[in-house]
Simulated assay, not measured.
Amino acid sequence: MDDIEIRKFCAQDRDWLVAEHRDAYAQAEGFDDSFGVLVAGILDDFLREQQPEHEAGWIAWQQDQRLGSIFCVRLDGETAKLRLFLLSEKARGKGLGQRMLDHCMGFARARGYRQMKLWTHESHRAAGALYAKNGWELMSSQPVVSFGQPLIEQHWEILL
C-alpha cells in the first residue's frame, strides 16, 4: 500500500469515476442506469461549482491505475458531506479505505467543519463497519426503491 498515492480529483477522472460506479453497482447490486446518471450529475456539479477552499475530491492511484475515490463537499458552514467513496475490488482489504476516510475527515477538520454526514445503503456492509469503527453514528434507516432495486437507505453522521 506504500506505493498508492491519493491525488486530487480532476476533470480527466470524471468518465472513469462514472463508469467505475455504474459498473461496480450494476454488477454487485443490480443497479440500473439511473445510478450512473446520478454519479455523472454529482461530478458535473462538483466540477462546475467546487469551492476549493471548502471542498475536495481524491482518487487513489497505484502506478498508472485508479483504485478508488472519496469526496468532501460543503453542506453548510459547519457540515461537510462525504460522497462518492468507492474502492475497486482489487483495492479492498488492504487498509486503503481507512486511509482514504482519514484523509477526507482530516480535510474536513482542517477546513473547520464540526460534523460530517453521508448517505449510503445497508447492503454496503463493509463501508458501514468502517464508518462505525471510526465513530460515525447511524442516524436513520428506511426502505426505498432506488436505481431499480429495493434497498435500505442509511444516513450516517459524525461530530469532528
Rank of each mutant, 00 (worst) to 15 (best):
L87A: 06
L47I: 11
W156H: 13
R48I: 03
G41C: 10
G106F: 03
D15Y: 02
Q65H: 13
Y25G: 13
W156T: 06
G68V: 02
A60L: 00
A40S: 14
R99T: 05
R92F: 09
G95K: 00
L151M: 11
W58E: 04
G77S: 13
S34E: 07
S141H: 02
S123D: 07
V73Y: 12
R48K: 09
W58I: 07
E29F: 13
E53I: 05
E55A: 02
D102M: 01
A40N: 11
L86M: 07
E122W: 07
I4F: 11
L43Q: 08
L101G: 00
C104W: 00
V145R: 14
I70D: 02
K133N: 11
H54M: 03
L101N: 01
P150W: 12
E5D: 05
W156Y: 12
R22P: 10
M1N: 03
Y25T: 13
Q50H: 12
A108Y: 05
D102Q: 14
Q115D: 04
A110D: 14
E157D: 07
I70F: 03
L151K: 10
V37Q: 12
D2K: 12
F46A: 00
V39D: 01
R66Q: 14
D3E: 09
V144M: 12
Q142G: 14
F9A: 07
P52V: 10
F147C: 08
A26P: 04
Q142E: 15
G106W: 04
E5I: 12
A108Q: 01
